[in-house]
Simulated assay, not measured.
Amino acid sequence: MIKKIRLLFTLISFFQINAQILDEYPKNQDFYEGGLSNFYKEINDYLIKNNVSECDSKQIYQPRIIVTKDSGVKIIQDSDTENISNNKCAYDLSMAIIKNLNHWKPAEVKGNKYGAITEFIIYPKDLFKNYKVQYNPENFVINAQYPNGNKAFDKEFHDNFMTLFADYHINGVVNIEFYINHEGKIVNPRIYPAIDNRAFNIDFMRTLARLKKVWKPALYSNLPIKQRIAFPVKFSTNFTER
């Protein structure tokens, strides 16, 4: 098993993120030099070089991090302690990887570098003897599914939120984000950029609660994993669907 390591980088709460941190990488940009294939190749190289022991085949973990504009790394604290405990070997492996890999790549917008949030899958079984060149775990993920499909979600989202948007007369485009956890439940919902209207935010969360049906969680190698769901919505008195 991986030895416990003392993290020399900062664990931070999601809500402490500086405004200069992008919520996600711009389209077609990678968080690591050489892209995901090189990222996982360097993980495999690290594991072999350091003779790291394998984890149980049911272990899987998904770290969420900030790659800073200076190519450093900060971990976004994971509040799901039960999942960490159930996947302790994969979690420890993730922490070791984050600490020891060096080619993190900040986001870039109009020639300027920015820190950005990203996440990735660590499934140890595919990173040791099963590792294959050009490995990308995203190619093997079965996405989370809403009961009766995406069209049903779109309709229920529209039906529940149309009145809310009209009532508050909020115009413009914002992004909605939530996660489908391992049990298929909606967790950690938020709107970004933030809307400075407490009453609206309370009503938004209440409205979202009406959609809290149990989804079929995303799967990787038949193991349930959490999955981020994010999409833009245009707020206006004439509500436009996502």
Results as ranks from 00 to 15, higher is better:
residue 78 D to M: 12
residue 100 N to Q: 08
residue 92 D to A: 07
residue 95 M to K: 10
residue 24 E to K: 15
residue 92 D to I: 03
residue 49 K to T: 12
residue 101 L to Y: 07
residue 41 K to G: 00
residue 104 W to A: 00
residue 22 L to W: 08
residue 42 E to R: 10
residue 91 Y to R: 10
residue 99 K to F: 00
residue 27 K to E: 14
residue 28 N to I: 02
residue 104 W to K: 01
residue 91 Y to T: 09
residue 40 Y to T: 04
residue 18 N to M: 05
residue 96 A to M: 11
residue 60 I to K: 01
residue 47 L to E: 02
residue 48 I to Q: 13
residue 89 C to S: 13
residue 99 K to W: 00
residue 77 Q to E: 14
residue 66 I to T: 03
residue 90 A to I: 12
residue 26 P to N: 05
residue 63 P to E: 11
residue 46 Y to Q: 02
residue 21 I to F: 07
residue 32 Y to M: 04
residue 78 D to N: 15
residue 82 E to H: 01
residue 88 K to T: 12
residue 21 I to A: 09
residue 86 N to A: 06
residue 52 V to M: 13
residue 23 D to E: 15
residue 82 E to W: 00
residue 98 I to W: 01
residue 54 E to C: 05
residue 82 E to Y: 05
residue 48 I to G: 00
residue 34 G to C: 09
residue 84 I to L: 14
residue 87 N to I: 11
residue 105 K to I: 00
residue 25 Y to N: 07
residue 41 K to D: 10
residue 37 S to W: 00
residue 105 K to R: 13
residue 83 N to G: 01
residue 54 E to W: 00
residue 56 D to Y: 08
residue 55 C to W: 10
residue 57 S to P: 14
residue 45 D to R: 08
residue 105 K to P: 00
residue 96 A to D: 04
residue 105 K to E: 12
residue 93 L to C: 11
residue 23 D to W: 13
residue 87 N to L: 10
residue 53 S to M: 12
residue 78 D to L: 13
residue 87 N to C: 12
residue 64 R to I: 09
residue 58 K to C: 06
residue 50 N to F: 08
residue 57 S to R: 09
residue 50 N to D: 04
residue 44 N to S: 12
residue 65 I to M: 04
residue 95 M to F: 06
residue 26 P to H: 02
residue 71 S to F: 01
residue 95 M to R: 11
residue 81 T to H: 09
residue 34 G to T: 08
residue 43 I to G: 02
residue 91 Y to P: 06
residue 101 L to T: 08
residue 62 Q to N: 14
residue 95 M to H: 03
residue 96 A to Y: 05
residue 93 L to T: 11
residue 61 Y to G: 05
residue 93 L to E: 07
residue 39 F to V: 01
residue 26 P to A: 05
residue 38 N to C: 06
residue 55 C to L: 10
residue 22 L to F: 11
residue 62 Q to L: 15
residue 44 N to K: 10
residue 63 P to F: 07
residue 49 K to R: 14
residue 51 N to S: 12
residue 38 N to M: 13
residue 94 S to W: 03
residue 105 K to Q: 15
residue 96 A to G: 13
residue 52 V to Y: 08
residue 91 Y to W: 15
residue 97 I to L: 09
residue 57 S to W: 02
residue 58 K to M: 12
residue 28 N to G: 01
residue 21 I to Q: 04
residue 37 S to I: 10
residue 100 N to A: 01
residue 64 R to A: 03
residue 76 I to Y: 06
residue 94 S to I: 08
residue 87 N to W: 09
residue 28 N to P: 00
residue 87 N to P: 07
residue 106 P to Q: 07
residue 106 P to M: 03
residue 105 K to A: 01
residue 88 K to P: 01
residue 30 D to W: 03
residue 80 D to Q: 12
residue 19 A to P: 02
residue 99 K to A: 11
residue 20 Q to A: 11
residue 49 K to W: 01
